[in-house]
C-alpha cells in the first residue's frame, strides 16, 4: 500500500487537510464569497462574505485537527454554528427548500477541493492525494449537515417566535380611563396564553400607571383549575405592584365550574360585566359619572 509509505512523509490526511485549510484560508474564503450561498446572504458587502468565509474555514481546520472530519457535534463548529444557522435561515426565508439549501452548501466543496489538489506537487503519491480529498469531502459533508441541522432549529425557533407574537396580538390592553386598563380575553386560555396575559396586563399597569386592571373573561368558554390559578396569581401580582385587579364577565356556567372545582376566588374582586367592573374602579378612583375629582390622574 503506497499510502502507508506516504504516512511518514505527509502525516495523516486529516492533518494535511487542516494545514491546507489554514494555509489557503484567504483563497478559499475569496472563492466562497462568489458562491451563491454567501452572495445571497451577504448582499451588502463582499468583504463581509469573505470575513464569514474565513471564520468557516478556520472552524473546519479545527475540526480536521481532531482527526474526525465526520463529526457534526465537533467543538470546532461551535464558533460558526450561529452564523451558519443564520445563513441557512436566510436562504429558507428566501424561499429555498432544504434540498436547494443543501445543494448550495455542497457547491462550496469543488472550489476547496480544486485548491487542495492544485497544492500537491506532481510527484505526490496518488493514494495520499485521494485520501486527503476524501477527508476534505467528508469534512464538507459534515459542514452541510451542520448547516441543515442549525437551519432546522432556527426554523423551529422562528415558529416559536411567531406563536408568541400571535399570543401577544391576541391580548390587547385597552386603556379605559386614566388609571384603568382592561384586557378582554376571547377564546381558550391555556397555560402559555395565561402567562402572556399576566405579563401583558402587568406591563400595562406600569406603563399606564393604572391603579385598576380589569380582566374580562366574557369571551372565555371554559375555566379549568389551572386557568383559575393563573387568574389568582395575576390578581396577587397586581396587588404587590400596587394595583387592584378585577375579574369581570364570569358567566354562570363558569361560576358553576369554579364552585365545582372547589376553587377559592375569595380574595378576588369580581363583577358580572365589564361595565360593572369599570363602574367599581371609577368609584374607587373617586370619579363618578361626572369626573369631579380625578384621583389617580397623576402625570404618567
Amino acid at each position: 500500500m503506497p499510502e502507508h509509505e506516504a504516512e511518514g512523509q505527509h502525516g495523516s490526511p486529516t492533518w494535511e487537510v487542516r494545514d491546507f485549510l489554514r494555509r489557503r484560508r484567504e483563497q478559499i474564503a475569496q472563492r466562497w464569497a462568489d458562491e451563491s450561498l454567501f452572495r445571497a446572504v451577504f448582499t451588502v458587502s463582499r468583504d463581509e462574505a469573505v470575513e464569514a468565509g474565513r471564520a468557516v474555514v478556520e472552524a473546519l481546520a479545527e475540526v480536521a485537527g481532531t482527526g474526525r472530519p465526520e463529526n457534526p457535534a465537533a467543538a470546532g463548529f461551535t464558533t460558526v454554528r450561529e452564523q451558519l444557522g443564520r445563513m441557512g435561515a436566510a436562504r429558507a426565508r428566501a424561499g429555498l427548500t432544504p434540498a436547494q439549501i443543501s445543494v448550495e452548501v455542497d457547491a462550496l466543496r469543488p472550489p476547496a477541493v480544486d485548491l487542495l489538489v492544485a497544492d500537491f506537487p506532481d510527484d505526490a503519491p496518488a493514494g495520499f492525494v485521494r485520501e486527503c480529498t476524501n477527508a476534505l469531502t467528508a469534512l464538507m459533508g459534515t459542514l452541510r449537515l451542520v448547516v441543515m441541522e442549525t437551519a432546522l432549529n432556527e426554523g423551529e425557533a422562528m415558529l416559536d417566535r411567531q406563536r408568541l407574537q400571535m399570543l401577544e396580538v391576541a391580548t390587547p390592553v385597552i386603556r379605559l380611563w386614566d388609571g384603568i386598563v382592561a384586557v378582554p380575553l376571547i377564546g381558550t386560555l391555556d397555560s402559555a396564553r395565561s402567562q402572556v396575559v399576566m405579563e401583558t396586563l402587568l406591563e400595562a399597569v406600569v406603563t399606564e400607571q393604572a391603579r385598576f386592571a380589569i380582566l374580562d373573561i366574557t369571551g372565555v368558554p371554559t375555566v379549568d383549575s389551572l386557568v383559575a390559578q393563573h387568574l389568582m396569581k395575576t390578581v396577587q401580582a397586581a396587588r404587590l405592584m400596587g394595583a387592584e385587579c378585577i375579574v369581570s364577565g364570569i358567566r354562570p356556567a363558569i361560576a358553576q365550574t369554579i364552585v365545582h372545582l372547589g376553587l377559592d376566588l375569595g380574595t378576588v374582586v369580581t363583577r358580572a360585566g365589564l361595565a360593572d367592573a369599570l363602574g367599581y374602579a371609577l368609584g374607587r378612583l373617586g370619579a363618578g359619572i361626572v369626573n369631579a375629582a380625578p384621583r389617580g390622574a397623576e402625570p404618567r
Binding site: 405579563e199 401580582a237 397586581a238 404587590l240
Partner: peptide
C-alpha cells in the same frame, strides 16, 4: 412598598410569598 416590577411580582407570587 412602591414600584415593584412586574417580573418581581410574578416571581414572588410563584414563590408563594404574597
Amino acid at each position: 412598598v412602591a414600584g415593584m416590577r412586574p417580573a418581581v411580582a410574578i416571581t414572588l407570587v410563584e414563590l408563594g410569598l404574597t
